[in-house]
Write a protein that binds this DNA or RNA. Structure first.
Lengths: 193, 193
DNA sequence: ATATAACAAGCAAGCGCTTGCATAATCGTT
DNA sequence: AACGATTATGCAAGCGCTTGCTTGTTATAT
């Protein structure tokens, strides 16, 4: 009564949409059933609880972000290039999986304590890759950073906040957006390139 | 049966705490009553609906941010100084009114359409002040910005995201935090300080 | 004497989820 | 190809509880 099935996948899709749009607590199990055209009880042939849906979506989000940054971190780019590519990868995940990203970045608080901890671990893992990128940039002499923690925090803030304003029908590609942000981050307002 | 009264203010305080902590839909009217040591029905001697509480808190947040940026915008500082002071003002609002800020920046989505529009207008007003600061910086020759919209978006992203990680018992003052961010924003990773 | 703010009780609606049953698709065995 | 047996998926009904909020009444403070 679980895992892969076309119906289950479509239920997940509606859950993503609704959790992203109205929040976890704001979405009722009947809303999801309704969107699939079945009764709420029938959902439970495919899922075992509402919270399981949230956890599965949040986990998918976590994995998407970690996978994206890994391929950048493991590449042979210079730190400067990695900042550009990492930003682009992050924003690409958001643009390609907007609902999942919103749930992962916004609704994960509604999880139970243990499950929230699991997601938190993934977040920490993700941030660690950025820490490495920035540190290697300092060691290579490319970056002159007085406080590395705040440089990382700035990058992650900008990258995460994208889910609040990104419009899928906008003109700019994720790479365009990343480049514009990277220009400010790398050169600053007073010496922008 | 409304407006100022010690009890009403304390109800608002609990609502701020709970909305901030568990979200609007995650907070039940009985939770608030319980925190005040009264029954849920007794709340309605002081408020007229749960959503009114949310709207009042969100409106207070909006006003706090707008007021803070106004005093910076109307000052005689240089644009560079205004960026530092504006960031500090923003972060000061968050640190001094953490719950209100979280509700204003995170939970306002739960409002009805009309009331969400009212809050959105306040957000737009706030952003306009930043737009002016950046534009005057460009005209004064202090900033070299290729895409002003993204410079503004970057600043607001960093400033807003603070509510996600700020710890009141941390060592750094809002001004410390603002300075560290401003250093990156003004000079970039490649030419910091 | 009047106004205020609390309680006790509860309403109608909604909540996540379970149960018992019907229909149909899928299967291994002839 | 035909068979009964198994499994998957939905509906109908509803359970026990919670939701935001209302009502009528009482205690207290001015």
């Amino acid at each position: 009564m679980e895992k892969k099935s076309a119906q289950r996948e479509q239920i997940l899709q509606e859950a993503r949409r609704l959790f992203s749009q109205k929040g976890y607590h704001g979405t009722k199990i009947r809303d999801i059933a309704n969107a699939r055209g079945i009764l709420s009880g029938s959902l439970y042939s495919h899922i075992s609880s509402k919270e399981d849906l949230l956890f599965e979506i949040a986990s998918d989000g976590a994995e998407a972000f970690v996978t994206a940054i890994q391929s950048v971190a493991n590449s042979s780019m210079t730190p400067t290039e990695k900042v550009r590519a990492g930003l682009a990868a992050h924003i690409r995940v958001i643009s390609n999986h907007l609902d999942v990203s919103r749930v992962f970045l916004h609704e994960w608080h509604a999880l139970s304590d243990e499950r929230r901890d699991i997601i938190q671990q993934k977040r920490d893992e993700y941030e660690m890759y950025w820490k490495d990128i920035l540190e290697s940039g300092v060691q290579a002499g490319e970056f002159v950073i007085s406080d590395p923690k705040f440089a990382r925090l700035l990058i992650l803030s900008v990258a995460n906040w994208v889910y609040n304003w990104y419009q899928p029908d906008g003109e700019l590609t994720p790479e365009d957006i990343a480049d514009r942000f990277a220009n400010v981050i790398l050169f600053g307002l007073r010496h922008s390139e």
